[in-house]
Amino acid sequence: MRLWSLHPHYLDRQGLLAAWRESLLAQAVLLGRTKGYTNHPQLFRFRESKDPAGALGAYLKEIADEAHNRNYRFDQEKIERINHGFTIDVTDGQLEFERQHLLAKILVRNPLETERIASLSAGPITPHPIFHAVHGPIEHWERGSLDRAPEEASGQQA
């Protein structure tokens, strides 16, 4: 399960579809409708919010809106609850880690998506609208984040 901190416009077709599917699974977990994935680290930041299911609903809504912009039809009736009333902090180290992770995936599965690759390759990265970027290292809940600085995640030497 990957709940991207990056804005959904960076996701390629496969990434957007996976984000929708995995976010719906996350919603089911937060609503207690499944026994699997209950301790998944990607859910940590949503669980810490005042309204976990509402926060995830707002996250899903942005994915659905991006899908609509691309003329895909995601059934927004599947979103249980949406709370647009707050944001969740995400570190710039986490955003950079995810940028490099997504870029590697797109270069393998869609190497001809030059515009998307270029938008990921340089400049500041835009977070998903429910997230607010703050300075810091890779998030503690990210797999493999221990003993790893953001520079290492991006492939840069310190």
Rank of each mutant, 00 (worst) to 15 (best):
Leu30Ala: 05
Pro124Thr: 13
Val29Leu: 06
Arg73Thr: 09
Arg73Gln: 13
Lys61Gln: 05
His132Leu: 13
Gly136Pro: 05
Leu3Tyr: 06
Ile79Cys: 08
Glu66His: 08
Lys50Asp: 10
His7Asp: 11
Ile138Trp: 09
His132Tyr: 12
His7Asn: 13
Asn110Gly: 00
Arg33Lys: 15
Leu17Ser: 12
Ser145Asp: 09
Pro124Gln: 14
Pro52Leu: 04
Asn69Ile: 04
Asp89Val: 05
Gly54Ala: 08
Leu102Asp: 01
Glu152Leu: 09
Leu60Gly: 02
Thr34Tyr: 07
Val29Ala: 06
Glu152His: 14
Arg99Asp: 00
Thr38Gln: 15
Arg148Lys: 14
Lys50Arg: 15
Leu56Asn: 00
Thr34His: 12
Asp147Leu: 10
Glu48Trp: 09
Trp20Tyr: 06
Thr38Met: 07
Val108Lys: 11
Leu30Gly: 11
Pro137Trp: 02
Pro41Ile: 04
Glu113Cys: 07
Leu31Glu: 15
Leu16Arg: 01
Lys105Trp: 05
Glu48Gly: 11
Glu96Arg: 12
Ile106Trp: 00
His140Lys: 15
Lys105Ala: 13
Gly54Arg: 05
Glu66Arg: 14
Asp89Pro: 13
Arg33Met: 11
Gly32Lys: 06
Gly123Lys: 10
Arg13Gln: 14
Asp92Glu: 13
Phe97Met: 09
Glu115Trp: 08
Leu17Asn: 13
Asn71Asp: 12
Asp147His: 13
Gln14Trp: 09
Gln157Val: 14
Val108Ile: 13
Arg143Lys: 10
Arg2Gln: 04
Leu56Lys: 02
Ser121Tyr: 00
Leu112Tyr: 09
Gly155Leu: 04
Lys78Met: 14
Arg2Asn: 13
Ala64Leu: 01
Ile106Pro: 03
Trp4Glu: 11
